[in-house]
Structure formats: structure tokens, C-alpha cells
Nucleic acid binder design. Structure first.
Length: 354
DNA sequence: AACGCGGGGAT
DNA sequence: ATCCCAGCGTT
């Protein structure tokens, strides 16, 4: 298919079918950047409320830079991939301090900033500054692999190269911003992963995958290894009526920088009586055996691991000290302000109505 | 080149 | 139950 035909046709489609989204109403590089980071590995519907909260709370990059990391993580709570939030904050500080609050304008300069990789740099440079550099995201892989019948695996170095080169060959010099967004929107709305809407597709007569019936086989992706299972037994120590013992996760692991309870981890499930035994050994000062209850099983299915979790709830009297320096008792209202994994938030909501 | 990192919606 | 999403940084 002719390159010019493809870009014209998809841009025409976009202008008639695009969703109205707040980050499409602005050319402010700060807001473009914010939306792009939020939308990394995240669907529009999941990211939208976060975008609205961030732009409302932090109208400028300097406002964001002046916040604490805790505030940023708190606002990011529930969105996942929390290194995005830490890099977002880091990047805001760099832009605020080293660039006088103005983002660099070129693809190459943008890519040097924390949290900005190939995709995000291309998105900002093209959308905010009309640089003719193609974005290559999951949508682009899908649309191009199907229409042009490319079966190079997308999660290999070779695949990334092949698709980036093709994408940059297709992007027009005029309106690269519209073109990039058009391909992504088309991938999100029509050329979807499973059962794409080929019957009403504007490229029905040109699409290699449709012609050969390969829609559900493209793009090709090498299978990763299967996710591991982890068993978390959270020890929830409630002091008086109003405070809970919590700790910040500092180990290099899931939920780094977020707060949860002290926990006993295992690669295999442990019987409840055994868990209570271990808890007694760990926290003898709370006299665990007298007041312990165990919650139902919480199953938390993530892409890279499945976490099976139970909460062991121990009530203790006032004026008991925290058992370790890294832990601290927080009143329930303060607990509500701490950034926590959704698993913890759900448990708290159910048990303590936070 | 491979791995770790979240949560939610669609199928 | 599985896949995948407007990916990035580290090992």
C-alpha cells in the first residue's frame, strides 16, 4: 500500500472518529507529558481520573516538582507501576531546576529525562512540537504488523527495530502529531487485540492479515516465563481502637515506597495455626495467642505474579511500643493518607471503613 | 537480551 | 484463566 494513502486515510478516519479526551485539548508539553506517563501500559479509562487529579493538584511542572514524593505516590495510589510516579517527580524536579520549568523540545533531549523513553519522547516531540518522529507502542505494533503482514516478534530487538523503521517511514512531515495519535486511536478502537472489527475497517481491502485471515495471529510475541506465586500473611496489629502498625516497603521488590503491614512470606501456603505460631515467635510482646483473628483469603492476580494473602489481626492495648524502628503506629486517618498497595486498601476499606 | 514492575478490563 | 494495555529502567 502506498505510504501516502495510508497516512491520509488513517488521519481522515481519526478526525471523524476520535474520542474527546482532555489531553487532546492542549499543546502544553507538561500536560502532554503527564498524560503519556500515566498512559504507559495503562488504558485510557483507567488513567483518565488520575490525569484529572494530577492536573488539578499540580497545574504546572514546578508545582509538581515542589511536592513531596509521598504526595505524588499518594496521588498515584492504585495506578500501579509506581516507579513511574517516582520518575515523574524526579523528572519534574530536573525540568523545574535545570530547564527553568520548560521541557526540552526535541526527541533526543526529551529521551534523556527520567521516565521518558523512546515512546514518550516521540509522543511529546510530535504532539507538542510537531517533530516528525513516530511513536511505537502496543497499538502501532498491532496495526502495522497486521496491515503490512509483518511477523517479526515485537518483543525482540529485531522486532523493535523493524517496526520503528517502518513507522518512521510512514509518518508524514505535515501533522505528525495527528498521525501518531491516529494510529494509536485506530489500534485502540478498531484494530484491537482480539476479534478486530475487520468487517467495517477502512483498510479491509489492503490489510494483509485480513486477506490471509491472520488477524488473531498478529502481532507475534515471544512468550515470557510464567508468573510466580507468593503467599503473604500480613500481621495487622491494632493498638486501641484507632491505630495500626505499618511499615514502608524499602526492599527492591513490588510496591517499593508504599506502606503495608509487617508480613510473613512463603512460597507455599501455610496453615493458619502455623502462621499464628510464627507470628507469636516474631511478636511475643503482643501476646498473639489471646486475641488473634485471621481474615479470608485475598487473591491478587498481577501480570507478573499472583499474591495470595491473609490478614492476621491482633488487638493490643494502648501504649504498646512498635517492635522495630522501621515500623510505626498510625492513627486511622493518617493511615488513609499513606500510599498503599490496592490489596491493603481493599482490606482496610472492608475492615476499618477507611 | 532478559527481567521486574500493577492493576483492571475484555474475552 | 489469559491477554494486554499511549513502556521504562536495571541487570
Amino acid at each position: 500500500m502506498d505510504k501516502r494513502y495510508f497516512s491520509d486515510k488513517i488521519v481522515e478516519w481519526y478526525q471523524e472518529n476520535r474520542r474527546m479526551l482532555p489531553w487532546r485539548q492542549t499543546k502544553d508539553p507538561y500536560k502532554i507529558w503527564l498524560s503519556e506517563v500515566i498512559l504507559q501500559q495503562t488504558r485510557v479509562n483507567q488513567g483518565l481520573p488520575y490525569y484529572l487529579r494530577f492536573t488539578e493538584t499540580f497545574p504546572t511542572v514546578t508545582a509538581l516538582a515542589n511536592a513531596s514524593e509521598q504526595e505524588v505516590l499518594r496521588l498515584w495510589q492504585g495506578l500501579g507501576y509506581y516507579s513511574r510516579a517516582r520518575n515523574l517527580h524526579k523528572c519534574a524536579k530536573v525540568v523545574s531546576k535545570d530547564h527553568h520549568g520548560t521541557f526540552p523540545k526535541t526527541f533526543e533531549e526529551l529521551k534523556k529525562l527520567p521516565g521518558i523513553g523512546e515512546y514518550t519522547a516521540a509522543a511529546i516531540a510530535s504532539i507538542a512540537h510537531y517533530e516528525a518522529v513516530a511513536v511505537v507502542d502496543g497499538n502501532v505494533f498491532r496495526v502495522l504488523s497486521r496491515i503490512f503482514g509483518i511477523d517479526t516478534p515485537i518483543n525482540t530487538t529485531e522486532g523493535k527495530k523493524v517496526f520503528a523503521e517502518l513507522a518512521n517511514k510512514l509518518i508524514p512531515e505535515t501533522s505528525p502529531d495527528i498521525y501518531n495519535q491516529a494510529v494509536m486511536e485506530f489500534g485502540a478502537m478498531y484494530c484491537v487485540p482480539k476479534n478486530p472489527l475487520c468487517a467495517e475497517c477502512i483498510f479491509k481491502t489492503q490489510c494483509t492479515a485480513y486477506e490471509k485471515g491472520l488477524q488473531n495471529l498478529l502481532p507475534v510475541k515471544i512468550k515470557g516465563k510464567e508468573s510466580r506465586k507468593r503467599y503473604f500473611y500480613y500481621v495487622v496489629i491494632q493498638k486501641g481502637e484507632n491505630s495500626l502498625l505499618m511499615k514502608k516497603r524499602v526492599e527492591k521488590d513490588i510496591w517499593f515506597g508504599l506502606y503495608d503491614f509487617p508480613l510473613i512470606e512463603s512460597t507455599k501456603p501455610i496453615r493458619a495455626d502455623k502462621v499464628i505460631e510464627k507470628t507469636t515467635a516474631l511478636y511475643p510482646i503482643y501476646r498473639v495467642s489471646e486475641s488473634v483473628t485471621v481474615s479470608d483469603l485475598y487473591k491478587h492476580v498481577l501480570t507478573h505474579q499472583t499474591i495470595f494473602c491473609k490478614f492476621i489481626i491482633i488487638k493490643t492495648s494502648r501504649n504498646m511500643p512498635a517492635p522495630e524502628k522501621s515500623m510505626k503506629f498510625y492513627s486511622l486517618s493518617k493511615v488513609g493518607d499513606l500510599p498503599k498497595p490496592v490489596l491493603i486498601s481493599k482490606f482496610l476499606k472492608k475492615s476499618y471503613l477507611l
